[in-house]
Amino acid sequence: MSAVGGGPGPGLLAGAALIEEIEEAGAPRPPRRGRQRPKAWRVLILVVAFLFYLIPFAAAVKYSLIQPDGSFGFDNYSQIISNSDVRSSLYTSLEISAISAVAVIAVMLPTVVLVRLRLPKLTLMLEGVTILPLVVPPIVIAAGLAHLQGSAPEWLVRLWFNHPLTGLTPTYVVLAMPFTYRALDTGVRAIDLRTLVDASRSLGASWFTTMVRVILPNVETAVLGAVFLTIAICMGEVVLSSIMLYNGVLPVEMIQIGAQSPGISVAISVLGLVFVFLLLFSLSFIAGRRRGSTSVRVI
């Protein structure tokens, strides 16, 4: 999101559009009429885009396989685990991502459901608030936090800012909020929430059970997408961590190592890109399975 590659706007809109796109990828389609011969302008841009992106990627892969002594090998990749700085920063980032993902769902899903079911008038306000982390660039939030970090009383610093886990996670949840809200909202709108909840409650389930066993499974794709993107944001977030001088997270570590042993950083990048790609790719198939035979055709 804003913290990673892009800025404000994309998080919200791109994320929701991405979720929809992924869901659509799996949906059954009506039979197409007529064949379409590949046209020159289409082939051209596809070829150009393919080359434009794949060539640097291939170059990066090659680069990552060049070991410090000049030969080819997987040294850079094994260093990810064997190099203690890299390893620990990787774990820290993973921890932060996992906690953030859980936290953001735990905060947002009930809120979204609550507003949709009981407080529909708050919808606009909710949308407005969740837009804020987009309108306020992360660098600016970071500036405010850094100031707090420097001027807060001792006890607060110890509680909040001492360790990246406590220092970054809460704000990462905020950064992930806009996108998560949009995705969950889309997911919740797509199901008949009212009916499901009424049915569940009438059968005697508690709110907690309803949420976990009835609502959650039905917004699976949306939640998965939200979780996934939160993790992506956290794993790549470097603005906040850098301003607040936390060196123990992966992206910052990558930059620091980048000066002496860029090979490792490139290796991590390659792995990261591939992993995220595979995650999204498989998500499109999972989404498809869920749609299944319940689609209604109008024509």
Partner: peptide, 22 residues
């Protein structure tokens, strides 16, 4: 669509290193 998601979202640091490598 998966590749677009990766780049639009996760870009940032990983993208930078990819370009430095290239």
């Amino acid at each position: 669509s998966s590749a677009s998601g990766v780049l639009a979202y996760f870009g940032g640091v990983a993208l930078a290193f990819m370009l430095i490598a290239a």
